[in-house]
Design a protein around this nucleic acid. Structure first.
Lengths: 190, 190
DNA sequence: ACAATAAATGAATGATCGTTTAATTTAGAC
DNA sequence: GTCTAAATTAAACGATCATTCATTTATTGT
């Protein structure tokens, strides 16, 4: 029996991310993705049920890796502020190194394709972080406000600042990243 | 001579926003938009050069109205914090009342269609706000950090919190909106 | 070496795409 | 009331779409 070529599947994913970034979902046909990945259009249907499945799977894949990256060196025993800062720096590092994947995810999550994703499952990897936030609230280290509100002032500004499409002129020097963290911390601290 | 039917153009724009929200750019064909607007596909080409022009014009239109809404009751003579709060409340009001238009804009700006927009022109309406921010910096009322960074902690959290797609469980009560503003202000104040 | 099996493919499918064209309708000028 | 010019349209264009199918290719177990 012949086995699936792992390189081939990876090539399909990379081609999908590249094309969707450059020409959008509208123009990224199965034929073009296949050509970019150097496979036959029919090959894509061996790995994925249909085009929609390809796009959704690619998104879930990226989100999973983003979650893992954010929680790198996660150590619940450290001081609360340090935990948050580690996540903060991890975020900038991930986006800087995986800008195409990040932008694919942003485009995807703002499109109706997003409705096809099981968000509960995707966000499950982020639970340790939510637990820590709650601990910070209980210990009166950070403000007692809903988690969404905290996220809106920690994780989203991070994502926006590291998105070169939105922040064209802002240089992401260590100094600027530190400074931005000060703002985030001032927002949520008790 | 017969004159263009203003109602017809408006119907086309509303149909575009509705369909792009519900089924995305990919599935929103000219034929479907025309059917939704109760006009012939050819009619769309009287008002717009092509499909791309329709989508871009719709976006610019929405952005223009958002800018106007944010700067409602803008009064440079008021205390800095009050100016900011007015903009903050305006933002929540606009998104709540125009959720479909807002989500169209979000989907658009995260897609490669965004590259076709003259962003300098679009953001020009927002200049009064930037001037006020600079005044706040000069008077040491808010932190001396790049404008993008300030925006990331004021305007973007506002947009995220008011987006029901992102904040499914957070009720947008006056209390929550006030509380969120406290976080924003704590982030940027000197 | 060969049979078995699944991966991989090129070509073809009918449907739908954006856009154009030629004909028709409509509202105002005289 | 008729003429005129622009608005509007239905129908048709070739191109491209997602997907399928019959066939070939590559790899494994014997």
């Amino acid at each position: 029996m012949r086995i699936k070529d792992e390189l081939k599947q990876d090539a399909i994913i990379q081609a999908t991310v590249k094309l969707v970034n450059e020409i959008g979902f509208v123009s990224s046909s199965v034929a073009k993705i296949a050509r970019e990945a150097n496979v036959s259009p029919a090959t894509i249907y061996i790995y994925y049920k249909n085009k929609e499945d390809l796009l959704v799977s690619t998104y879930v894949d990226i989100k999973q890796k983003l979650s893992e990256a954010l929680l790198k060196n996660f150590d619940e025993s450290k001081p609360f502020r340090d935990i948050l800062k580690t996540v903060w720096l991890n975020g900038f590092e991930y986006v800087a190194k995986n800008i195409k994947h990040y932008q694919y995810a942003e485009q995807f999550s703002n499109s109706p394709y997003s409705d096809l994703v099981d968000h509960v499952k995707v966000e499950k990897h982020f639970e340790p972080m939510l637990k820590v936030l709650q601990k910070g609230i209980d210990q009166k280290v950070i403000k007692n406000v809903p988690h969404e509100m905290l996220a809106a002032f920690i994780f989203y500004p991070m994502m926006i600042l590291s998105n070169p499409k939105l922040c064209k002129t802002l240089e992401l020097s260590n100094e600027n990243i530190e400074q931005a963290f000060t703002l985030a911390w001032d927002a949520i601290k008790f």
